[in-house]
Each structure stands twice: as C-alpha cells, then as structure tokens.
Design a protein around this nucleic acid. Sequence first.
DNA 1: GGTGTTTTTGAGCGATCACTCAATGCTTTT
DNA 2: AAAAGCATTGAGTGATCGCTCAAAAACACC
Lengths: 197, 197
Amino acid sequence: MVRAAPYDREIALDAAMSLFWDKGYHATSLKDLEATLHMKPGSIYAAFCSKENLYLLSLEHYFKTARARLRTQLQQASSPLAGLGEHLRSYARLSQGDTARQACMLTKSLVDTRSTDPVIAQKTQEYLGQIRSDFAATFDRAKALGELPADADSNRLARRFQANVTALRFELHQGTPQDEILNLAEDMARELEQLRI
Amino acid sequence: MVRAAPYDREIALDAAMSLFWDKGYHATSLKDLEATLHMKPGSIYAAFCSKENLYLLSLEHYFKTARARLRTQLQQASSPLAGLGEHLRSYARLSQGDTARQACMLTKSLVDTRSTDPVIAQKTQEYLGQIRSDFAATFDRAKALGELPADADSNRLARRFQANVTALRFELHQGTPQDEILNLAEDMARELEQLRI
DNA sequence: GGTGTTTTTGAGCGATCACTCAATGCTTTT
DNA sequence: AAAAGCATTGAGTGATCGCTCAAAAACACC
C-alpha cells in the first residue's frame, strides 16, 4: 500500500514525538519506534534516514506546535501581560491524563543530549531561544501599550518568564499535587502582573 | 592489591557521580564507567552489584553532599532569608569550569528515568522532597525570628523557592551568558527578600 | 492484465549493551 | 617460604542496539 505521504508522515511524526517526549532520546529504541509508528525498520529508515534525524524532526514538530499554541493564546488575550499570565495558569489547568502534563520536551531534550549529542543539543537551544524571543516581543508590546514602564528590560523579563515556565512544567513532570501546582502558577502569574503600571 | 576499602570506595563513588551527573543514566555505559573509575567490569560488579545500584549510590552521594553544602551555607548566613538569597546568588558565581555549573543532578535524574526506571525515579523524588523540607524549615525559622509574617505559608514558599533554584540551574546547564545568569539570580533573590517584613 | 516503478517487508548485519566467572595475582597467616 | 584467603582481571556471555538490503507486495499506467 502506498501511503498518502504527507498525511501519514504527519501522523507518524506526531506519534514519534510523543514517544521521544515521554522516554527521551537515549531510552527510546528502534523497537519502541517500530511498535508506536506501526512501521518496520526498513520503512522507518526510508522515511526518516536515522534515529537522530527522526528525533530532530520530532523536535521540530514539537516546537512548531508549541509555538503556534502559544501565539494563539497570546493573541486571544485581552493584553500582553494578561496573555502571559494566562499561559502560566493554563499549565496548571491541564487535566491529569493530558500528555502535555510533564516537562517541556525542549527542556528534557537538552538535559538528555547536551553532553552526548551536540547536533540535537544545538537545535534544542535554538528553539528555546526562539520561544524566548516570542516572550520578549510580548513584553515589548506590553511596553508599547503602556502596560509596562518604558524602561523595562524585555529580554531580562523574558528570561525570567521562561525560567518560571520551565520550573512550573518540571513540577508537572514530578507529579506534584494539583493544589500545589495551582498555588505555584498563581504565585508566578501574580509576580508577573505586579509589573503592570 | 587490596583497596583501603572505605576510602577508595568514596573516591570511586565520587567519580561515578560526576560521570552520571554529566551524561545521565541511559547514556552512560559500563565502558565509560570502567574508564572513569579505573576498574574492570568484574571489580565494579563486586563492589556495586549493578549499574542501577551504582547509580542509586551515586545519587545518594550527590544528595548528601548537596544537602551538607546547603546546610552550611544557611548556617553561616546572617538570617534565614539572607541565607536563601545567598544560596541563589552563589550559583551565579560558580566559575566557568566548575562541574556544578549545570542542572541539579536530581532534576536531570528525574527527567532521565521517570518513565523508564521507577526505582530511581522514586528515590530521586524522595531526595527532592527532603531538600524542599529543608527550605520549608528555613522559612519556618524566618517566621519564628520575625523575618516573615506569622501567616506566611512555608511549604508554598519552599515549593516556589525550589522551582527558582531548578530553573536557575537549568540556565547554567544551557550555558546562558554570565551576565544574564547574574540578572536572573538577582531577580529571584530580590523577589525573595521582598517577603521580608 | 501485463509492465515498470515505488514502497514495504523482516531476517539478519556488526557493534555494543550490561554483566559473568574461571584464572590470576597480591596479602596475610603460619 | 608454603598455604590459605580474597580482590582483581579481562575474555567472553547472550541480548539488544541502530541499521541494511534483497525479495516481495502494492501500486500506476497503458
């Protein structure tokens, strides 16, 4: 059977992403991928070249999805700062079974590969940097709208904000009780909203 | 040659810890351990039973060292809150070559093993919990000394503080530029010190 | 329905994995 | 200095790793 290529490829990539996200690069074997993608080794290699390349494609897929979700969230908010606050609180509202209820895949990826796979590590840092620059742009918009003082340091705020998101999602990963997650997200969101003029 | 057992064992454990800390559980092979510990496979297994057990011992060694360092730091400070602030800033001052200039081993361990090795994951969470309870006890002392309001929620503050430490150390892991690390640590420390009555 | 092209298959490749154990030292006891 | 007691050795275990490729199956076109 010839696959309707782009469609099935997207499906397979999404499944690979979930598996890699959950188990990490080193702990995921080709056997695992064969079972999850419902593909034999030959097909996997015909379609994705290597385990490393499949991981890179999965990471890109994760990044694009995450960034799109973030941008939508920010656009729908009543203001830049409100959007960022809502972003934090939305993690705390993730339902128990949600696959996103764990650490950011980029965080996990960097921890997993920084000292063993420079190619993956570098791409991961690139993606983290791009998301951070989205945060910085949002702080810039807040300044332009008079929501933040004109002398606020957007890059510094973005770094701080990203650190908060990373930490919050690591708590999800840990399985911290829901009420403590809500408190933590609330603390972070309040701190952010106190910057408002 | 018969080893002076407890001494050499400590040396070996420290070397194993460094290696596991750097590469992670799954990416570290027995070959790597043989080279780092200067021991042949037979000796390693005679001394440590299994790779998993050696990892657990390394993790315990890390925990004990880290906890001791933290307690000394807190004792030497002029007040509980000052000690916690100093703890944050001390990470930012770590020299470029320092092996500690990366993510906390407990953080990395949980990311690496949560969905592949329940035994390790559980121990890791236990250690993280114990460190958090040290933080909570410090906030309690701050309350007793009148440094914090009597109705402050020590556990909530401890969770927030630990999240900050995790995030700050992840930035070290990422190789974020020194000046940005200093800013981030400063932001976190100031936020903490603003709790002071 | 025959032909040419493309895709899928899965047994099996060499390398490496975590790990074992009979043989070999070294040290202590006598 | 011989014997007994242990820690150390490293070649070798079966299993699994990421990956290949010749054969088979499924398709498109005429």
